[in-house]
């Protein structure tokens, strides 16, 4: 393979080298969190974590574990940099994202360290493109302090059932209200739009409900505009875990299966909009 021979000599100077036979496995999952330009990349021996934030109220993380990559070498405990996600995605799909079966774009992603650009070697059909994307000063991501010990309610649903609901949600509603309760209505999504209100109720014994652990009735509202980007992740995913903690913070975790059948995760954290009285 021309890629490996070409850059083998200088591999030592990179703090991070990650190779993929199919760049789509990375670009697809990054698309699920693309709602702002700037993305923070954090690599550890476990894999790559990409973080995007909006308005200090929403955070999305994509986790691509080391095993997804054909090669994943890291010289330090943790490597962080920030790049423009839109630019990165444009580069990853620079060959047009061919849909012909068997034709994939191979990727080798290298980073020399602080102050250096992120270098991408992309190869498809014997053509190699080298992209250098300037990195930015990494900013610390917000810690939502969402701790699993504080989780009050949690459900795991098959994504198909939520996809339907999200595709039909009344977007004239400013908020999406999520009710989780150990009793009726168990798990409810509500919108309050121009046309009236709408509720989607999922009973706890539904076939689509993989897990139902609700301890206390909670009704929280979240800005529709903040949650909307998460539908991209939902569309890719096969399962979704919805959790709320005692402060009403929302965590959505999506289990995403890539073309090769491997599993990645995308996670969204969202602040509640305001306190509402429980009905």
């Amino acid at each position: 393979m021309p890629l490996s021979t070409q850059s083998e000599a200088g591999d030592d100077q990179y703090v991070l080298v990650a190779s993929l036979d199919n760049a789509k496995n990375l670009s697809n999952i990054l698309k699920a969190i693309t709602f702002k330009d700037h993305a923070l990349f954090n690599a550890t021996a476990n894999g790559l974590k990409v973080t995007v934030e909006d308005s200090k109220c929403l955070q999305a993380n994509a986790f691509i574990q080391a095993e997804i990559f054909q090669e994943f070498t890291i010289q330090e405990d943790s490597v962080s940099f920030q790049v423009n996600l839109t630019v990165l995605l444009d580069c990853l799909t620079i060959f047009g994202g061919s849909t012909v079966p068997g034709v994939t774009t191979a990727l080798r992603m290298c980073y020399k360290g602080y102050g250096f650009p992120l270098t991408l070697f992309l190869e498809e059909g014997g053509v190699v493109t080298v992209c250098k994307i300037n990195t930015q000063e990494p900013e610390d991501p917000i810690d939502f302090e969402f701790c699993s010990t504080n989780v009050t309610n949690k459900v795991i649903l098959q994504s198909d059932s939520l996809k339907e609901a999200f595709s039909e949600l009344d977007m004239t509603s400013e908020i999406l209200q999520i009710t989780m309760s150990p009793s009726q209505p168990y798990f409810r999504l509500s919108t309050f739009g121009n046309a009236g209100n709408a509720h989607y109720d999922y009973p706890k014994d539904s076939d689509m409900m993989e897990l139902f652990q609700c301890t206390k009735t909670q009704t929280n509202r979240y800005k529709m505009s903040l949650l909307k980007p998460s539908t991209k992740a939902l569309a890719l995913s096969c399962k979704v875990s919805v959790r709320t903690d005692n402060r009403g913070f929302l965590s959505l975790q999506y289990l995403v299966r890539n073309d090769d059948g491997q599993i990645c995760f995308v996670e969204y954290y969202c602040c509640p909009d305001e306190e509402v009285e429980e009905e």
């Binding site: 059932s161 039909e168 046309a195 009236g196 989607y200 999922y202 539904s206 689509m208």
Partner: peptide, 11 residues
Amino acid sequence: KHGLLKTHNLS
């Protein structure tokens, strides 16, 4: 199906 209940209240 799957027990999902959709309620639309229209004025």
